[in-house]
């Protein structure tokens, strides 16, 4: 498969064989019949969702539809009451905790930009870098030339190369969003979960973000949660609409926007 070949080439080092993500059947993420309740409130209700390897998928839905809870379930933050979540054919994500899932290659950008304010742009990216993340190796870690180049590359890509030694805390909201996307890229993920990437961005920044996400598809599987319909239209091939914790419909942006049930949910409520 072209896509798999691309991933290995891009990331430089391939995972050990037993940790390899098996995507021979197409999907890289399987969620089947997942339900989550908080104090009686059903955040996810028998939700099933499949994300293909290399796909760029947009998730939309009104507030409370369960978009963020879905990301929490995939990344190990929330355990579902019932259902199955698999990464490829073989890796059961429900048996793993957050760091293990992140190391396996599922990375997440949060709704509220979460960068480390007391560290510089460079250091934020350095911490995200895919490498040995145990305590002792981290204590003695030194960046090699290749890793420095990689950080430099990502800084150029996200437009922060000139702010290398600035503290992340003084960046603008849009720049923080970009830095966090950069941190995702440093982790060389197979799956990127991107929660509201363009909140607080200027028009130009939004355009650049769309370009960036489009350029990444194929190499990474990307799931974008966004409210801005114009933005979703500009990047999405396939859109999934969530409503009250389950998938309402899936399809192209046009199909979805003309679906009477979607119109009902958004307008009629």
């Amino acid at each position: 498969m072209m896509i798999t070949a691309n991933i290995t080439q891009e990331s430089g080092a391939s995972l050990p064989l037993d940790g390899e993500v098996d995507t021979r059947h197409g999907p890289i993420l399987y969620l089947e019949d997942v339900s989550v309740s908080f104090d009686g409130f059903r955040a996810l209700n028998h939700l099933s969702l499949y994300i293909d390897d290399g796909e760029l998928r947009c998730l939309i839905g009104p507030n409370g539809a369960g978009k963020t809870t879905l990301m929490d379930v995939i990344t190990g933050k929330t355990r579902p009451d019932t259902g199955e979540v698999f990464f490829g054919q073989t890796i059961d994500l429900l048996k793993m905790d957050e760091p293990a899932i992140a190391q396996a290659g599922i990375c997440r950008k949060f709704q509220k930009p979460s960068v480390f304010d007391a560290l510089t742009v460079f250091e934020n990216l350095e911490l995200a870098l895919k490498t040995d993340k145990r305590t002792w190796p981290t204590l003695f870690s030194k960046l090699n030339g290749e890793q420095c180049e990689r950080i430099q590359e990502v800084m150029l890509l996200i437009g922060l190369a000139g702010l290398k030694n600035q503290l992340a805390g003084i960046l603008s909201h849009g720049q923080k969003q970009w830095l966090e996307i950069g941190m995702l890229l440093m982790q060389e993920p197979k799956v990127m979960l991107v929660d509201e990437p363009i909140a607080g961005m200027t028009h130009q920044e939004v355009e650049r973000t769309a370009e960036l996400l489009l350029s990444l598809q194929g190499r990474h599987s990307i799931v974008v949660v966004e409210h801005d319909m114009e933005f979703v239209r500009s990047i999405a091939r396939k859109v999934t609409v969530l409503h009250e914790g389950s998938v309402l419909t899936e399809g192209s942006m046009d199909e979805v926007q003309n679906d009477p049930r979607v119109i009902q949910v958004y307008l009629g409520g």
């Binding site: 957050e98 760091p99 992140a102 997440r108 480390f116 304010d117 007391a118 250091e123 993340k133 981290t138």
Partner: peptide, 18 residues
């Protein structure tokens, strides 16, 4: 730096794989 990051945003560090 990891420890400083944990001080400021503990859960975020977990999602970086530490």
């Amino acid at each position: 730096r990891v420890v400083t990051a944990i001080r400021d945003q503990e859960s975020r560090v977990r999602f970086l794989g530490y």
